[in-house]
């Protein structure tokens, strides 16, 4: 049953690529935003928090449509990117990664923010008095102690990216070989007569990938927290 057609293999490969790129690209801004929300007071904090969480609340189709309006070739941002940098998102796999990244962003930021908030600020103060500049305090104290939450957030946003459907299909459509991911491929197969076995194969592979990601994150988190809370071996 698990012998895939070339078209299915392309969809699986694309899905993994899009989810990995989306997660990797959203991690640095995710850390920055989470840290700012957890540790800084600034003008517009509530607004930033709202914008970050919007994709979680809005219907995905709306997010996708907004992306199309803004980032499409004729859109205000998309046209500038296209004209000056030659970067095009609409109807490309990069657009699918952008949509997936944005949809996973709130989950990523939320998990990291919560874990940063749990880091004892008194330890950060101690680091400062020992001569560590703020960026070093973040790198050597905050980040390692928040690592379990960062791993959890990364896996969540990876899972979200892998399963993203509404925003993706609205923004970059469902083009085999370019933007067709596992979810949109399953949707296609279930809409054509005789496509059930192909859909089933992709369903099984989805479950396998998701389980693998969960197990991996669990193992990582366990190792990290054992280290953080001090496991004498």
């Amino acid at each position: 049953m698990l012998s895939f057609t070339p078209e299915e293999l392309v969809a699986i490969h694309l899905s993994l690529k899009i989810a990995l790129v989306a997660t990797a690209a959203s991690l640095p801004p995710g850390l920055l935003v989470a840290w700012a929300l957890a540790r800084r007071d600034f003008w517009g904090k509530t607004l930033l928090n709202g914008i970050v969480h919007l994709p979680l609340i809005l219907p995905p189709v709306v997010t996708g449509y907004l992306l199309l309006l803004l980032m499409g070739r004729k859109g205000p941002i998309g046209s500038i990117l296209d004209q000056y940098f030659g970067i095009v998102f609409a109807f490309r796999w990069t657009g699918a990664a952008l949509a997936a990244g944005i949809m996973g962003f709130p989950l990523l930021v939320r998990a990291i923010r919560l874990s940063i908030e749990l880091v004892d600020r008194r330890l950060e103060q101690a680091a400062v008095t020992l001569g560590a500049a703020p960026i070093w305090v973040f790198m050597t104290v905050t980040l390692p102690l928040a690592l379990p939450g960062i791993i959890a957030g990364t896996i969540l946003s990876f899972g979200k990216a892998l399963g993203e459907f509404g925003a993706t299909i609205t923004f970059v459509s469902n083009i085999p070989g370019e933007t067709q991911t596992i979810p949109t491929a399953i949707y296609t197969y279930t809409n054509v007569p005789g496509g059930e076995t192909a859909a089933m194969r992709l369903v099984v592979i989805s479950i396998i990938i998701s389980m693998a990601a969960l197990v991996l994150s669990e193992l990582l988190a366990r190792r990290v927290s054992a280290k953080v809370i001090g496991d004498e071996r």
């Binding site: 101690a126 008095t129 102690l145 001090g230």
Partner: peptide, 20 residues
């Protein structure tokens, strides 16, 4: 002067050792 440039050693009431 920002705290990290003050060359001040601080021993807090609770040791505040880095657990990791």
């Amino acid at each position: 002067l920002p705290p990290h440039k003050r060359r001040v050693g601080y021993v807090f009431q609770e040791a505040r050792l880095f657990p990791h």
